[in-house]
Amino acid sequence: MRLPRAALVGLACVPGLIAVLLLVVCAVRVGRTGDRPARPPVAARPAVVHPAAKPPIVPRSRWLDAESTHDQPPARYDDRVVAVFVHHTDSPNGYDCADAPRIIRYLYAGQTGARQWDDIGYNFLVDRCGTIYEGRAGGVDRPVTGAHAQGFNHRTAGVAAIGTFTAGTPVPRAMTDAIAALTAWKLGLSDVDPRATVRLVSSNNLARFAAGTSAVLPTLAGHNDGFMTSCPGAALTARLPAIRELAARLQGR
């Protein structure tokens, strides 16, 4: 069947009309978006986290008995832990590790008695056999505000090595390994490198830095980094670089 001439002309124009229509649509869209540059696709950023395994931690209930416990206010918390301070307890070294709970209970009694602190100041304590004990109340997994580094208690954790580690005193390998494991885990919760530095603001004029001073300190520091003291002793201070390196390896860095 032969189509009329007018129909053939109309069909021949259809492709052209479609092309014109597409050009109009594109022009409209460009006009609507021309004042906004096209945004490049946002690449997903994987979380840069270096967790470390949580080491075994003996709870407070193993060293603090009902007779020694006193009334104390609720624990206080920071948003996270960005530094760890290492201390020594300035107590005898020749103890049996089975006596560590008794020693911690004695330290607790002194700090909450004569010093009138609300709790033991250290967040953790480590004996010469490498056993880690929970110190200050509030939960080992949480950023509990301690009372261990005058001026720099906020956003830090205090770890006390049970003993006295002045120059020439042997520092047990089990103790330093435990401090490294604890540091790796605790700083890993905030993805903090144990070999790095952090800026902290002093809150006390009795610290090495006046209140309000912004100080750059190691993320794994000795007590003497923030306070005028010989703590944690020259022997343990000398081991801190190796402890930092081991803690970083435990985080997979």
Rank of each mutant, 00 (worst) to 15 (best):
V144A: 08
R32S: 11
A196R: 05
L200S: 05
L189C: 02
Y95L: 09
A19L: 15
L17K: 02
G252S: 04
I243R: 01
R253V: 08
G139Q: 11
A27G: 15
R2K: 15
L220E: 02
Y133H: 08
R36L: 13
A180E: 01
P232I: 03
V86C: 00
A211M: 06
C26G: 13
N204P: 04
H88N: 15
L11I: 10
L189E: 08
L8C: 07
A12W: 05
K186A: 02
R195P: 06
L3I: 09
P4G: 10
D35G: 15
M1K: 12
V9N: 07
A234N: 03
V198Q: 09
C231V: 13
V9K: 09
P40F: 14
V159P: 01
L17V: 15
A215I: 00
A149C: 14
L240R: 11
D90L: 13
T69H: 10
M175S: 08
A161Q: 02
A52T: 03
A12K: 03
R249G: 05
G222W: 01
L220R: 03
C97S: 10
V84D: 05
H88M: 13
G226E: 06
L206G: 15
V28M: 10
P4V: 13
V82S: 01
D79N: 12
P51E: 11
G168T: 06
P56A: 08
G226F: 04
G10Q: 14
V126Y: 01
I57E: 05
T183Y: 02
G121Y: 09
G151C: 00
N123A: 05
S202E: 06
R155W: 04
R239T: 11
F227R: 08
A47H: 06
Y77E: 08
G121C: 13
L246R: 15
N205F: 01
D127G: 07
S203V: 12
S203T: 15
R102I: 01
A157T: 02
A109D: 11
T164Q: 10
V159E: 02
R244K: 15
F209P: 00
R208P: 00
S203Y: 08
H88P: 07
S230R: 10
R115W: 09
A234S: 13
T176P: 00
A98T: 14
T169H: 03
A215F: 00
S68Y: 07
Q111D: 10
A247D: 09
T156V: 14
F209L: 04
P172V: 05
T131I: 09
M175R: 04
A7R: 14
S190Q: 11
R105P: 01
F152D: 02
L3R: 12
Q111L: 09
I162E: 00
E134A: 15
G138M: 11
R253T: 06
R128C: 07
G139I: 12
P55A: 05
T112R: 06
H87P: 01
L220F: 07
R249W: 06
A180C: 04
